[in-house]
């Protein structure tokens, strides 16, 4: 049952995308420059999971696109 997104929900979704984006980049640095192989591999794995997260968050925003009112509501 989809409801229109509240302003707050939208902000959390958007903030979460920034968080996931930052984590992708941090993991990329770890996967590239760590000397420990376990850390490098884990970094690579986590990049993929964070990319999925970004897609899920984007998908959720787009699913709510049509429900959003065009005028401010009371």
């Amino acid at each position: 049952m989809l409801q229109a997104l509240t302003g707050k929900e939208l902000e959390y979704l958007v903030d979460s995308i920034s968080n996931e984006d930052l984590l992708i980049k941090q993991n990329a640095v770890m996967a590239e420059s760590a000397t420990n192989m376990q850390l490098r591999q884990l970094g690579q794995q986590m990049i993929q999971t964070h990319r999925q997260h970004v897609q899920m968050l984007l998908q959720s925003i787009s699913q709510h696109q049509q429900l959003a009112p065009l005028q401010p509501q009371q």
Binding site: M1, L5, T6, Y12, L13, N19, M30, H64
Partner: peptide
């Protein structure tokens, strides 16, 4: 390197918990 990622994962865990508690749409 690892600690930087770990610290951010912990922060994001907290943020997702807050976001969940403040969502009104069941799907979100």
């Amino acid at each position: 390197l690892a600690y930087t990622v770990l610290a951010d994962l912990k922060r994001v865990v907290n943020e997702y918990a807050t976001a969940a508690t403040e969502s009104s749409c069941q799907q979100v």
